[in-house]
Amino acid sequence: MDLFGLVTITVLAVFLGFEVVSKVSSTLHTPLMSEANAIHGIILLGAIMVAGQADDPLILAVSLLAVVLATINIVGGFVVTDRMLVMFAAKPRRARKDDAS
């Protein structure tokens, strides 16, 4: 893609990024930060791209290190966010108990 197209996408993504998080309550700041952290783990795709083209052992080693680090970022990021969010899920049992008392 040409430079102008890439710059257009970047500018639009900046505005979108501002917009999607502008109305989040502070209660959810921690999971949101964790989610954003998981999403930038998509650098794994970039790491796989360079590792898949590496023809020199040293470059391959550096690329594979990037793959390991990026995998830790993306997999760990989504799993730990899920653990946080389990606790925010609806708890119907609790609601019934409150009604009864």
Binding site: L6, I9, V14, L16, G17, V20, M33, A36, I39, G46
Partner: peptide, 25 residues
């Protein structure tokens, strides 16, 4: 930045989204 260098649109969008939303956060 990696997305720009690799001309990969997804890395560019995801990274920029996180950069922008992370700044607001």
């Amino acid at each position: 930045g990696s997305g720009l260098v690799l001309s990969n649109v997804l890395l560019l969008i995801a990274g920029t989204l996180v950069g922008a939303s992370g700044t607001i956060l």
